[in-house]
Design a protein around this nucleic acid. Structure first.
Length: 733
DNA sequence: ACAGACACTCTTTTT
DNA sequence: GAGTGTCTGT
């Protein structure tokens, strides 16, 4: 008898059939982990007769969730719809919408995205006269986010604060939290940690969900942070049927709080953990896997494993170096155009920073190559979309000051800064929301402006009425645009600009059609949790342009890794500590393993970054790929794309016996990245040194490493850091 | 109240 | 280089 499990290899089968108790699935890139998860769910339902309602699968992106849902229903039919397949964030919204009143919030809360957070923080800075030369909004928000990821409350952070800067930040954190509460809003991180708070404080709620989710599966487990771990840990405590799938080599979100310890110490957190490794790769050619393995083996902090395939060796990896970023972009897009044969969807260009997309996009437009750009400015963060959403938020939640402030004078209706400041003062004094203050603005003494505000309020009230009467959302948005004259105001910035903004709004209106009449809150909620990757359409016949981070979990026949340059990739900011550099290397590993058949690495000697021209050397990650895997004959054909070609001796540092003069010259001016090993250091153990980011510290240890000196420094503010001397640029003081 | 001019910072990655 | 914030004149 043949079953759906026959196609699986032994390890995969073992993973599917191990349903009880904690299971750690270490799944390398392209090892078919999503398929295994799907079959596992099918097995639970069909063979173990588990109610689909009792199964939870958690992902990070809506796209992954959607894909999983589709695959489950394909595998087992309509029963699959009852499985809880959601992202961490949307799961938490579900929990909180239902129960957050138990921990003192209103169930009707709004969700702040990073833009809203910044606006709120700016407001807090202003109201509290915080010096934005000492405290940067972004920096404080980062601190707050890290705290939340680690489940540290403002009070706890205050206790642990060692210097005045941290104490001040702790105070701002406290104000930030209370303002959020006042606005009846939660930020992204709150969604997770308030859920944890809910479960910890309300055993009955926790018990309810524990019973519901008897089997839990977590995808991309290497990306979970402490708060997310705590969440699933709590949920899994009763039945302990938890299966986590991850790959420590693909952990690339440390900057966002992902805690690699979650995967490395899973076996300590749960008892009797079964560990299964999936190492057979079904995606890439042998050469590509060899390259990936060769690069990642330079990392020290990892579980040892290595990908293999019984498929073809495949083509060599191409390496091309260009004089500047324009030539690089030009080559890539022309190359795709020549190879594509109208199969554009098989091609992807991946890069480290969003800024790199501009040149590529321009080339696509001029050369007529269809493309889709993922990332950059998220659709839902575009000005016009945010404006419309702010109107809708104001209609849905009267306490959301941030939304109200955004649109109170957009389009211009003669309610200026002075007026708003007066109303805001009044609201603060009387501890009411800005909106409530506006409803009684005739008491405030703002003269004629009161009439304008009254008119605005009357309009919002009218729409609230419509929502209560279950108005159609799309119609309502159209009416809103009409009444406010918003569309016309867009054209003030120019015809073309206005047209594209109008199209975006139309897209938003189209999206709203999927929602039932009167379901405004639901619409707003889902819209605020959409990531850019979720909008990617794999079936459209276009090439894909996106960052390496965005590419995780995807695969393409042909992948271009653009900007393989020291300072850009690895980023200059991530080349300081070994941990950071290893995260960059994991990113390189992710990039390489996206390719199924062809991999092309490109770099530019000269590139404009932040308005200044920078010169850089080939990325060390290229050098880590064995020489015999790299294609050699490429440089002859390069002439037509660059003003000047470069020999291998120039392109590959390990062949640099005598460096040509011109290379030295270009490197001697502009901002450069000195990656050559320093002969000796002008500081020694015990010296006090200064670092550009970490400040003052004492040198504890200097190790003469393979490529560079590794220096261990104890910084006054940041503690002990290990760094490469060439990058750290420590100055003895 | 608001438009236009200048100055300043910045981005590495994002649910 | 772009986007944001601040200042100035109407």
């Amino acid at each position: 008898m043949s079953t759906i499990y026959d196609k699986l290899n032994d390890k995969q089968k073992q993973a599917v059939f191990t349903t009880e108790g904690p299971l750690l699935l270490l799944a390398g890139a392209g090892s078919g982990k999503t398929g295994v998860l799907m079959h596992r769910i099918a097995y639970l339902i069909n063979e173990k007769h588990i109610d689909p309602y009792n199964i939870m699968a958690i992902t990070f992106t809506n796209k992954a969730a959607k894909e999983m849902k589709e695959r489950i229903t394909n595998l087992i039919g309509a029963d699959g719809n009852f499985v809880w397949v959601m992202t961490f964030h949307s799961s938490c919204v579900r929990f909180l919408r239902r129960f957050i009143d138990k921990i003192g919030f209103d169930n009707n809360f709004t969700i702040y995205d990073s833009d809203d957070q910044r606006t709120l923080m700016k407001k807090i800075f202003k109201e509290n006269n915080i010096n934005s030369r000492v405290y940067k909004e972004r920096a404080v928000l980062n601190i707050i986010s890290s705290c939340k990821n680690e489940l540290i409350s403002p009070v706890e952070y205050m206790k642990s604060a060692t210097d005045r800067y941290e104490k001040g930040a702790a105070r701002i954190y406290e104000i930030y939290q209370s303002t959020l509460k006042k606005n009846n809003a939660l930020d992204f991180d709150d969604l997770i940690c308030r859920s944890v708070e809910l479960f910890e404080n309300c055993p009955d709620v926790l018990d309810y969900y524990q019973n519901r989710f008897r089997y839990i599966m977590v995808d991309e487990y290497q990306d979970t942070n402490t708060a997310q771990f705590k969440l699933i840990y709590l949920l899994a405590q009763k039945y302990k049927n938890i299966c986590v799938v991850g790959d420590d080599d693909q952990s690339i979100y440390k900057f966002r709080g992902a805690n690699i310890e979650n995967i490395l110490s899973f076996e300590d957190k749960f008892e009797n953990v079964e560990v299964i490794k999936l190492e057979q790769n079904y995606r890439s050619t042998g050469n590509i896997l060899d390259a990936a393995n060769a690069v990642i083996k330079n990392n020290r902090g990892r579980k040892n494993k290595s990908l293999w395939t019984d498929g073809a060796t495949g083509a060599n990896i191409e390496l091309r170096q260009f004089a500047n970023a324009d030539a690089e972009a030009d080559f890539i897009i022309k190359d795709i155009k020549a190879k594509a044969n109208d199969n554009f969807k098989d091609f992807a260009v991946l890069y480290r920073t969003n800024a790199q997309s501009r040149l590529l996009e321009e080339r696509c437009v001029t050369l007529g190559v269809p493309y889709q750009l993922v990332g950059g400015v998220n659709f839902y963060q575009r000005k016009e979309i945010k404006d419309v959403l702010a109107y809708l938020k104001t209609i849905a939640n009267g306490s959301d000051d941030i939304a109200l402030l955004r649109i109170i004078n957009v389009p211009k209706r003669g309610i200026g800064a002075t007026t708003i400041a007066k109303v805001a003062d009044y609201a603060n004094e009387n501890v009411i929301s800005l909106y409530d203050a506006m409803t009684i603005c005739e008491n405030i003494g703002i003269g004629k402006a009161a009439d304008k505000i009254k008119k605005f309020i009357a309009m919002i009230e009218e729409f609230r009425d419509k929502v209560a009467k279950k108005a159609n959302i799309a119609n309502m948005i159209e009416e809103l645009l009409d009444k406010t004259g918003y569309i016309e105001s867009l054209y003030d910035e120019g015809e073309i600009e206005g047209e594209s903004r109008k199209e975006n709004i139309e897209e938003l209106v189209n999206k709203s059609v999927d929602y039932e009449d009167g379901e405004l809150s639901l619409f707003l909620e889902e819209v605020s949790l959409v990531a850019d990757i979720d909008r990617m359409d794999e079936n459209a016949d276009r090439i894909t342009l996106m960052t390496l981070h965005g590419a995780k979990g995807l695969e393409f026949d042909t992948v271009y890794l653009a900007g393989m340059e020291e300072g850009l990739f690895p980023s200059a900011m991530s080349s300081i500590t070994r941990e950071d550099l290893e995260e960059e290397r994991r990113l390189a590993y992710v990039g390489i393993t996206r390719a199924k058949k062809n991999l092309i690495l490109t770099s530019a000697k000269q590139r404009m970054i932040n308005g200044e021209t920078r010169y850089s050397l080939l990325s060390r990650f290229v050098n880590e790929i064995p020489r015999d895997l790299l294609d050699k004959h490429i440089l002859d054909t390069e002439k037509k794309y660059t003003q000047r070609t470069y020999s291998y001796e120039e392109a590959l540092p390990w062949e640099n016996k005598a460096k040509p003069d011109n290379v030295k010259n270009t490197l001697s001016f502009g901002k450069q990245f000195k990656v050559e090993r320093q002969k000796s250091l002008d500081y020694a153990v015990g010296d006090t040194v200064k670092h550009i980011k970490f400040g003052i510290g004492k040198v504890l240890e200097i190790v003469d490493g393979e490529k560079d000196f590794e220096v261990k420094v104890n910084f006054e503010k940041f503690g002990i850091k290990k760094m490469y001397a060439g990058f750290a640029k420590l100055i003895k003081i």
